[in-house]
Computed example of a mutant assay.
Amino acid sequence: MTTILIIDDEYLIADILSFALEDEGFLTVTAGSALRALEILERERPDLIITDYMMPGMTGLEFAEAVKAQDKFQTIPLMLMSGAQAHLGRQRADLFVDVFSKPFEIDVVIASVKALLTA
């Protein structure tokens, strides 16, 4: 089953996104921080990562750089969700395959995920 790692310190957003993606047949794992997500990466090896930008300890941009710095994770695509910082993610096409501004349309996120993972 295709696994998606969702990282957001706002648990309600992570849960809503998780439930919506599970309804579409994806397996999801959530993390409340980028540091926790780095631990999860070691055991889960997701097919896709969706991360928030603003989080305590490490931003989504710093997280993406840490992921891409490791050879074993370089092929995992990352998507970014952000309120005010979405433009920063759009400037980093080397890190993110898609960027969503918060509040996002859940249908748009699902369509992007499906296009990427079921192609």
Rank of each mutant, 00 (worst) to 15 (best):
L12W: 06
E42G: 09
I16E: 06
S33Q: 13
L41E: 05
L17I: 10
F19M: 13
L38N: 08
L17E: 08
I16R: 08
I13S: 10
A34H: 04
T28V: 10
E39T: 13
V29K: 10
G25F: 05
E22N: 01
E22L: 04
T28M: 08
T30C: 14
E44Q: 12
A37V: 06
T28P: 08
A37Q: 01
L17C: 07
A34T: 04
L21R: 00
A34Q: 06
F26I: 03
A31P: 02
G32D: 05
E44K: 07
Y11R: 15
A34F: 07
T28C: 13
F19S: 13
A14Y: 01
Y11W: 12
L17H: 00
I13G: 05
I16C: 06
L27G: 04
A31I: 04
T30D: 07
G32W: 03
L12T: 13
I40A: 02
T28G: 06
F26E: 00
E42K: 15
I40G: 04
E22T: 03
R43M: 11
D15H: 11
L35V: 14
D23F: 05
A37D: 07
L21P: 06
L27T: 14
I16L: 12
E39D: 15
E24C: 11
R36W: 04
S33T: 15
D23W: 08
E39Q: 14
Y11F: 14
L38T: 09
